[in-house]
Write a protein that binds this DNA or RNA. Sequence first.
DNA 1: GATGGTGGGTTCGAACGCGG
DNA 2: CCGCGTTCGAACCCACCATC
Length: 367
Amino acid sequence: MANKDLVKRAFSVTANLPTASQQRQDTASTSEAGLDGTKGSEAPATIASATPNKPAAVPVAPKTGPGSMLAFMTDQSEVHREVLRLRERLSDFDGAQATRAIDPKLIKASSWANRDLSHFKTEAFTRLKEEIASAGGNVQPIKVRPIEGAAAGSPSFEIVFGHRRHQACLELGLPVLALVQPDMRDAELFVEMERENREREDLSAWEQGVMYMRALEQGLFPSAKQLAAAIDRDLGNIGKAMALAKLPGEVVRAFGSPLNLQFRWATPLKDAHQRDPEGLLAASRELTTRVPPPSPAEVFAELTAQGGVHRQAPGTTAEWKDDAGKRIASLVVDRKGRVTLSFDQPMAEAQRRKLVKLMDGFVGSKA
DNA sequence: GATGGTGGGTTCGAACGCGG
DNA sequence: CCGCGTTCGAACCCACCATC
């Protein structure tokens, strides 16, 4: 039985990782009982003495020099095993990146980001803010890079992506969960920020344009073509986005928010600006004073109609209303440039005759 | 001629409205 | 409710022009 018990005991000792004192006691038991003694086979019971049925083993301090040395060595082997265990656990996180909770005041927006303030007033942003508030912080971390030589009290980090989550935490007074990426070059930051924004589809055409313009102005890329290649985007769209971004502020304001500007409007608006810059600005200023404000499509239609355009955008280009604000008539242009003038209310005979006469003159003058 | 930029046409997918 | 057609926005492609 002796050999069988020894094997069982040895396994038990290893598996239970005894403390030095336990092992010492075990050794003492073995010596007392002999290799074949039943007493020795009970030793593991001492190791497992934490069980409620058995009294806890009383640690015995080593009394001799070799005993102390043995105790030290076993202690050391225990530390060594712990190190190995921790290393093994650490290897589970190979490739993972650690996040930190950072005071949002210590983080500044990226130099190339162009989050329009109206982005932080949208319903989507309010929902995001509510989600973050209910979770007690942003669950999805933002990405930042440290700012070299930042002065005390000034921001120490720059956002790579996650401007909306940062803004939400800033407004809520919560720390931002952030992934800190050291040694990140400007171009790398730009490409990553651009990719993240595009994947989330939450940057307007105008904002993209401003972002691209800044990247080129600051020399991140030598040309728009190389910028397009770096971010894997079509050059034509980059040109259109930048054309929107180059529009005067008055024109952009006429649309209510820069977020309302669309890619396909870039060329017609640029044409209108080149054709009659003063006229376009005057029309834009006038549109911003309208109550109720016209829709973005109506603004576009009116601005591009300034000075006569070859290709008009489809949509309602003019509306007439009565004192109560109810629509009386509207002028609509379809995709082929055909114009329909319609009246929403019954027309008196006298008015009809007047309109026909007006049309005679109008069509006649065209012919 | 190479490179960079622009403009216009086409295509694709999503959203929407309408009729059965 | 479902299928179909239409519209809209974005992306892609390519031809063309300007500059060096």
